[in-house]
Amino acid sequence: MRVHKLSFAALAVAAGLSLTACQNGDDGAAQGAPPAAATASSPSAPAPSAPAPSAPASSGGGSGSAGTDQSGGKATGGAGSGGKATAAGTGGGGSGKADKCRTDDLTITAMDATVGGDAEGTVAVTLKNHGSGDCVLAEYAGVDLKTASGSLSAQRTGEKAGSSTLKKATSVSFGITYPLNTSGGSGVRITGLVVTPPGETKSVSLAWPGAATLPVTEGSGSAVKVGPIGSAGQGG
């Protein structure tokens, strides 16, 4: 009976040793393996973001500068300009050049300017600027004498004529020359004078201040002559 108990005890000890050895081998294998749980739970690294594009440099000298409209109109101001900016204009009517003298802006008068002993009579016609600003008179005015036989147009003398600026409230004169009636006959009676400023179509009718008659002439052409603007002096 004792022999059987010892054998059973020996078997139990051997079985315990074998179980311990198996457990130690499992533990070793577990300890040498990498920690799978840590690998799975680690967050993935974020992808690198693309660099933001750099803003283009302003050619206007700052964000608050206003652009210029090449057409000369309005230009829109930049950030911080507070609204619209108007481009500086050079324009058209900004040249400062005076317009031609209009008939309605001129006071026109005529006076006898004949000097004793002259072979011809002379009438001086004066144009005074009563307009709001300066104006330009160029070359010759138109002159017609009214006579009992009809209208007689004066011919230009041919003197060199330019243009001149007639300032406000100033005047300029030109001369009309005509033959004197020394024949002793009745001649051709003069009834009036018509003056048209240079470049204008509106005329002014005046009383004739010179001799009452012209000599009767034969042939073509007019013996009445008109000088250029300024040919009879300039008044104040």
Rank of each mutant, 00 (worst) to 15 (best):
residue 141 A to P: 00
residue 180 L to E: 06
residue 97 K to Y: 11
residue 172 V to M: 11
residue 172 V to L: 14
residue 211 A to F: 05
residue 93 G to Q: 10
residue 178 Y to L: 08
residue 196 T to C: 03
residue 207 A to H: 04
residue 122 T to P: 00
residue 158 G to S: 06
residue 143 V to T: 04
residue 221 G to C: 00
residue 183 S to K: 07
residue 192 G to H: 07
residue 96 G to W: 12
residue 173 S to N: 02
residue 182 T to S: 10
residue 216 V to P: 00
residue 133 G to R: 09
residue 123 V to H: 00
residue 213 T to W: 08
residue 124 A to E: 01
residue 218 E to W: 10
residue 128 K to E: 12
residue 99 D to K: 15
residue 144 D to Y: 15
residue 193 L to T: 01
residue 170 T to Q: 15
residue 97 K to L: 15
residue 146 K to C: 03
residue 195 V to N: 07
residue 153 S to M: 13
residue 88 A to C: 11
residue 136 V to N: 09
residue 189 R to K: 14
residue 121 G to W: 04
residue 138 A to N: 13
residue 209 P to M: 05
residue 166 L to T: 07
residue 112 D to G: 00
residue 151 S to M: 05
residue 130 H to C: 04
residue 104 D to Y: 11
residue 214 L to F: 06
residue 150 G to F: 11
residue 147 T to L: 03
residue 193 L to P: 02
residue 110 A to S: 11
residue 114 T to S: 02
residue 120 E to Q: 10
residue 98 A to F: 11
residue 129 N to Y: 08
residue 151 S to C: 08
residue 147 T to P: 02
residue 171 S to D: 10
residue 167 K to D: 12
residue 164 S to T: 14
residue 218 E to P: 04
residue 202 K to G: 04
residue 98 A to G: 14
residue 127 L to N: 01
residue 96 G to C: 07
residue 174 F to W: 08
residue 210 G to N: 03
residue 141 A to M: 05
residue 220 S to N: 13
residue 169 A to P: 01
residue 145 L to R: 04
residue 90 T to L: 13
residue 139 E to P: 04
residue 148 A to D: 13
residue 177 T to G: 06
residue 196 T to N: 05
residue 207 A to N: 14
residue 169 A to M: 12
residue 106 L to D: 03
residue 156 R to F: 12
residue 108 I to S: 04
residue 108 I to L: 09
residue 158 G to N: 02
residue 177 T to A: 09
residue 113 A to T: 00
residue 206 L to E: 06
residue 128 K to P: 01
residue 106 L to P: 00
residue 168 K to E: 10
residue 168 K to P: 00
residue 122 T to A: 11
residue 151 S to H: 03
residue 158 G to M: 08
residue 141 A to C: 06
residue 210 G to C: 00
residue 144 D to T: 14
residue 96 G to M: 10
residue 156 R to V: 09
residue 200 E to V: 05
residue 189 R to C: 06
residue 149 S to N: 13
residue 91 G to N: 14
residue 93 G to Y: 09
residue 111 M to Q: 15
residue 110 A to R: 03
residue 194 V to K: 12
residue 168 K to I: 09
residue 147 T to G: 00
residue 202 K to C: 03
residue 191 T to A: 09
residue 139 E to R: 15
